[in-house]
Nucleic acid binder design. Sequence first.
RNA 1: GGCCCAUUAGUCAAACGGCUAAGACGUCGCCCUCUCACGGCGAAGAUAUGGGUUCGAUUCCCGUAUGGGUCACCA
Length: 559
Amino acid sequence: MDYQKLAELLFPHVTETPAAMEAKFPPRNLPEGAKVTRFAPSPTGFVHFGGLFPSTIGERLAHQSGGVFMLRIEDTDAKREVDGAAEGLIRTLEHYGIRFDEGAVIGEDGTICDKGDYGPYKQSQRGPIYHVFAKQLVSEGKAYPVFTTKEELEALNAADKKAEIKAKDWHEDQTEAREKMLEARNITIEEVEENLKAGNPFVLRILADGDPEKKLRFTDLIKGNLEIPENDEDFVLLKSDGIPTYHFAHAVDDHLMGTTHVIRGEEWLPSLPKHLMLFRYLGFKLPKFMHIAQIMRLDENGNKKKLSKRDMGANMDDYSRMGYAPACVCEYIMTLLNSNYEEWHMQNPEKPYTDFPFNIKKMSNSGCLFDFNKLNDVSKNIISRMSAKEVTEQVTAWALEYDPAFGAQLSRDPAMTEAIFAIGRGGKKPRKDLATWADAKPYMGFFFDYVQEDEYDESFDRADIKTALEQFLASYDPADDMNAWFEKVKGIARAIGYADDMKAYKADPTAFRGNIADVSMFLRVAVTGKLNAPDLYTVMQILGEDETRARITRMIETL
RNA sequence: GGCCCAUUAGUCAAACGGCUAAGACGUCGCCCUCUCACGGCGAAGAUAUGGGUUCGAUUCCCGUAUGGGUCACCA
């Protein structure tokens, strides 16, 4: 077989050489130890949690080493591509603080364009580049064409191949497929010419020289030392439309773009032998690989499953809707990525997570379960450290989008809203009421709408409640400071035979009709409609005298 | 089914082959306390399993089980 001739037959339009491509994309001039990483999603939908994970790793490794972080759009499967998905991915990633130095970006006109010297960054636009290397492989006898008629191709696309294979016996199918594959290797140059003349499409397959009985030693930065079988499958390099498969595009792109660390999910581990073979055939230096464990969820049977697109908590847009701040999600991700992050953060509570020295060695090699409890805890801590002003802005912005009526209430009097969020804020032990912006409404909605959510406990004497409320109204003076205010409440307690001191009450509960806590509760339910609320004195101050009196008066009337 | 990966409390996780197997979240109890929230103290709760190597194994090796992944002209 004259491989050179075969290469010319298959790729007559390719005139460039691999060496010319190398010259076009020279190594970057970066400081020692700088890492070049990339996030390479296929534009088939929204960003999900499992995608934010590797992109955070890539971003951190690149930016804390003075390297480059790229976005490459892997749109080699037109069938699965979703319109506008790429733009959505970029926007969502940006929302979570993931910024790219190079790659596909959204231009001023709102469409995707390239930034950087190693593009194009959309694989669908890199066809000529792949063909240069494909031609090289053919000319070296390392790849060969397999022709199909158009009819066969249509049948192939129509059938649900995966389901078909699953239904069959695995062994039978494998041996059958292998025989077919070996037979296809024997194609002659005459047959190639005939097929080309007939206009039949072809796929380009690699000529595998591996022996699966032999093992390759390989070191993954996360998984450690692995022994994987050599590849003996003549997998497809170019599909019949001339577009490369993931495997081929990965090898060519990551080499030409100078990727130093390939970060991807561990579902790629089984195809690693293919990639090692490709890098070897092409004479490319192997980058470092990091195969990260998948995020899991629990299915209805209590088994772990890979977190997939349809799952709750998968779509990052869900987090926005639920009212999680991006910073909280990012921090939660950091706790999952590096086990020592939390420790570092406790010692450096004021520093942003980007100051944390991210360490590959500290990464877990087994998949973790998504935990909303933990997210909420992380989130409460972050929000508790924000200023009242910031919380006001964030909650208002969230509510205006997702709960417009509430948003309108919040923005009617921003100073009052801020005063509400200032309760118990600041200092060493701030309140931690909010994990999400959506938590704000149940927490402080009573300032705007009076709803009597909670009733007085049945054990309380209605007459006592009424007397206490009436006496409070009689003595209430909004000019009182907190001490004066509380002294008056104590006075009311004494007047109706309730203990004004909890210790005294606990020492002998039978000596009193009730205690100061009960009296406070009478007021609290009247003013807030709830059993639980932040500091009552401050609540009354913010509500103002008129509203406070009105609410108490209304309650008295119902008693 | 073949191959690959994994396995320490409900969850996330520490522990050069060497104290009584950390810590965080969650749960529960107590304290503080005008409720809630915060905070403090405490409790329950784990090395999947069977062999080996070793003075000694969560750690190293082999088997088993369980879970996950993968086996496309998808990525």
